[in-house]
Simulated scan of single mutants.
Amino acid sequence: MDLAPLLAAGVPLLGWTAHSTFLARRLTTARRDPLTGLLTRDGFTARAERLIRRHPERTTVLLIDLDDFKAVNDTHGHAAGDAVLAATAQRLAAWCGTDGIAARLGGDEFAAVVLDAEHRVPALRGQLMHPVGFGTELLPIRASVGTSHPATLLLTEALSAADRQMYADKPGARTARRR
């Protein structure tokens, strides 16, 4: 039996399979924040929209922003800031559990879409207020949390509503939007 035709077809197929696997892994990695392990905005959006479409009446959209986070970096250094971000991500992911999706959108801003969570939001606020250990110090943190229930199936509208509520929750309750 002549193996040349099988090898001629099999080798490229093996190469394409390896390349596809490599690209899939790279894409998965690109959709995860390397510091926190949470989804990035791109990885979060598709999954969150799917969850909202499947369960619009049970979905809560949250936006979380760490208050005065810049002061942590300026006072204690970026390693301390990284510790605060990682602890926040861990607390948010644990709170979401298997009923939700958590993401780090960028900087000190996080988001989540969770099923049947409205009554659990106060517990999340409390968890996010616990100081974060860094070396021999306990770093005080405060987080503002905004929630919304998607009246439509659009994630962007739900995030905008949560953003408005989050800024109303901030210390001093500034009414002006950032940026």
Rank of each mutant, 00 (worst) to 15 (best):
E109R: 12
T152N: 10
D116I: 14
A117I: 08
A71P: 00
R58D: 10
P122V: 12
G97D: 11
P131A: 15
A80V: 06
A89F: 04
C96I: 08
D82L: 11
G133V: 11
A168W: 01
T136V: 05
L139P: 07
D74W: 08
L105Y: 08
R164C: 03
L66T: 09
A117P: 10
M166W: 07
A123H: 10
V145E: 07
E57N: 09
T136W: 01
T98Q: 13
V72C: 04
L159V: 11
V84D: 09
R164K: 10
T98C: 00
L92W: 05
G81E: 09
G133H: 07
I141S: 02
R58S: 11
E137N: 05
G77R: 07
T147E: 13
L62E: 03
F110T: 12
F110Y: 13
R104S: 07
H130N: 11
W95Q: 14
Q90I: 01
A162D: 03
S160W: 01
G135K: 04
H76N: 08
D108N: 14
D82W: 10
V61M: 04
E118M: 14
V114P: 06
D163E: 06
A111F: 05
D67C: 04
D67Q: 02
L62P: 08
L85Q: 07
A158T: 07
L154S: 10
V72P: 00
T156E: 13
L124H: 13
H78L: 05
G146H: 06
Q127H: 15
V61A: 12
R120M: 11
H149I: 01
V72D: 06
D65Q: 03
V113L: 06
T60Y: 00
D163C: 03
L153M: 10
V132I: 12
P122M: 03
L66G: 06
Q127G: 15
A168R: 15
G77F: 03
M129E: 15
L105G: 09
L63A: 06
P56N: 01
A87K: 05
H55L: 01
A79L: 13
E57Y: 00
T136F: 00
N73D: 06
G107F: 07
A151Q: 06
H78P: 08
H130W: 05
Q127Y: 06
P56W: 00
H130T: 14
A102R: 11
H55Q: 09
D99F: 01
E137T: 12
T75Q: 10
L138Q: 15
A83T: 14
A94E: 14
